[in-house]
Write a protein that binds this DNA or RNA. Structure first.
Length: 507
RNA sequence: CGGGAUGUAGCGCAGUCCGGUAGCGCGCUCGGUUCGGGACCGAGAGGCCGGAGGUUCAAAUCCUCUCAUCCCGACCA
């Protein structure tokens, strides 16, 4: 084994970002491709992150008045057909169940049988099936608002997949709400986007830009789509969550009507919003480094690993006893409302082997305990946000305050680092040539990391949007809520523009 | 669905051009020495070479067909 290796992950980010991403996942043992095309197996370390995401978000949903429910994974084709735009948007990526039975084929195998009278679509999203229920649940304005969330798996038959970022099956949460008025529905749409933005910041240490999608980028069937966009370390944008104002489109197609205060029948106003396991991809690409996964402590499956170091059985005994005592003390610890979990890694591997194992998994704090430490009643502490070799001797009695403090500092540090990175790579551009130059790699054969977020004027025309997409593979990520009215010239056609939008390459 | 590539041990690969009955590294198992920055020694297990047909005394290797995967495009959270 070479001792000259500089980094735990090969290739490093700047050599081949896409490959680096795959290797980080593999090194941290988070997930793997399954034999089922396009589907992933989420392994315990990756799934624990998802569970932490779920736990935190679920509380936020609950606090904003939502309740969880569960709807069928199968959607009758006829439900799907009711909303024209919706059909158009998802038709090309549906898995369809047409049969209900297997029979012997006479050659030792099985053949499908029992054709269904109506095919079922495996949900790519649930607006239509949930709408059918909502139509029954809602009859009066007194039934509103109806605030429902479901945690589920969904299937979108993607042609090209990447672990966590785009898989044929993925896990997500979809909120579906029904409101009496347009204003209330719009407020809900905004509110839940805000919840996502807060969650991203507070838990994922991920700074996001909130904004509105353009007509061509919005959800099929929505009137308006809001999104949170985050910058990854290759300066590309990742849509990390969406919230849709559906107007009365789905209410009309599903028949969600209520009797108003004046006794009239009115179509309700609905919203839907979701985040998925893609957030884990965001997490990886926003924070990880050339030594592997880096996890914001508030979302990490475990926070501290204790690595006993010893030379013989006698020392082992002494060190392990000491380590177990510490582990016990740590069980009481928490930081910012998050319980601290500790690993004790006493595997028969060299200490450095164990250290690197946990570095690659992104555990925030590593604690080495050897005979020398016990003699001095200290331990050596290393943080994932510092160099692998940087260690600090900490007195044992200070650990219970040191650890939570370090975790909080790391959480904040990662956010600040990601925010600084995004700001460094966000520019205002008013010149078309400069814009094209900004998004053109110097080495076209193997493009280097380039570009970023470009704040530029856009006239609002889909023609210009499409032109830039064709020329540069750059799209309008969103029209930020924060963008203020400002006279300017469209970066593409030069016509009058009222505001800047964010252009970027995206996932 | 178009263009390109690849299928050989759990993983990564060599062997294919030029046919002769399968090898390397890592990992794994056992024993021992190690352990404060990716250890070492010794022993061992593990492969009908993606599948089907063909050519041949003989096929991982040549031919035909097929299946699968990956990359690049069109599409997407």
């Amino acid at each position: 084994m070479s001792k000259n290796k500089q980094t735990a992950i090969v290739p490093i980010r700047e050599q081949n970002y896409a490959e680096w991403y795959q290797q980080v996942i593999k090194a941290a043992d988070m997930a793997e491709n399954s034999d089922v095309r396009g589907c992933m197996v989420i392994k315990p370390w990756g799934y624990a992150i998802w569970e932490n995401i779920q736990r935190a978000l679920d509380i936020m949903f609950r606090e904003t008045g939502h309740r969880n429910a569960y709807f069928p994974i199968f959607i009758p084709k006829s439900y799907f057909e009711k909303e024209a735009e919706h059909v158009e948007g998802f038709a090309k990526e549906c898995a369809i169940v047409t049969h209900s039975r297997l029979e012997p084929d006479g050659a030792g195998g099985l053949k499908v049988a029992g054709e269904l009278t109506e095919p079922y679509i495996v949900r790519p999203t649930s607006e239509t099936i949930i709408g059918a229920s909502f139509a029954k649940w809602v009859s009066s304005y007194r039934d509103l608002p109806l605030l429902i969330n479901q945690w589920a798996n969904i299937v979108r038959w993607e042609m090209r997949t990447r672990l966590f970022l785009r898989t044929a099956e993925f896990l997500w949460q979809e909120g579906h709400t029904v409101h009496e008025t347009e204003a209330e529905a719009m407020e809900e749409t905004r509110k839940m986007l805000g919840v996502y933005a807060t969650f991203a910041k507070e838990f994922l240490a991920l700074p996001v830009i909130q904004g509105e999608k353009t007509e061509s980028e919005k959800f099929p069937g929505a009137v308006t789509t809001f999104c949170i966009e985050a910058m990854m370390q290759d300066k590309k944008a990742l849509q990390s969550g969406t919230s849709h104002f559906l107007g009365q489109n789905f209410a009309k197609s599903s028949g969600i009507r209520y009797q108003s205060r004046s006794g009239e029948f009115e179509y309700a106003w609905t919203t839907s919003w979701g985040v998925s396991t893609r957030l884990i991809g965001a997490l990886i690409m926003a924070h990880s480094d050339d030594n592997g996964l880096v996890l914001p402590p508030k979302i990490a499956p475990s926070h501290v690993v204790i690595i006993p170091i010893y030379r013989n059985e006698e020392e082992h005994e002494q060190v392990i006893t000491f380590a177990k005592e510490l582990e016990k003390q740590f069980k009481q610890l928490s930081f910012e409302g998050v319980k601290i979990y500790t690993e004790l890694d006493d595997r028969d591997l060299t200490s450095s082997e164990r250290n690197w194992y946990w570095i690659k998994k992104g555990i925030p704090v590593r604690i080495e305990i050897g005979p020398r430490d016990i003699a001095q009643n200290t331990v050596m502490v290393a943080r994932r946000d510092q160099e692998p070799r940087d260690k600090e001797a900490v007195a044992v009695e200070n650990l219970v305050s040191f650890i939570p403090t370090a975790l909080s500092a790391m959480q904040e540090g990662y956010y600040q680092r990601a925010l600084a990175f995004r700001e460094e790579n966000t520019v205002e551009i008013d010149d078309k040539d400069q814009f094209y130059k900004y998004f053109t790699p110097k080495n076209s054969g193997q493009p280097e990391i380039h570009g970023g977020f470009a704040n530029a004027h856009w006239c609002g025309s889909e023609v210009c949007e499409e032109q830039i997409k064709t020329d540069l593979k750059v799209s309008i990520r969103c029209i930020p809520f924060e963008s203020k009215e400002e006279a300017g010239k469209c970066i593409c056609c030069g016509k009058e523009s009222r505001r800047r939008v964010i252009f970027a390459k995206s996932y």
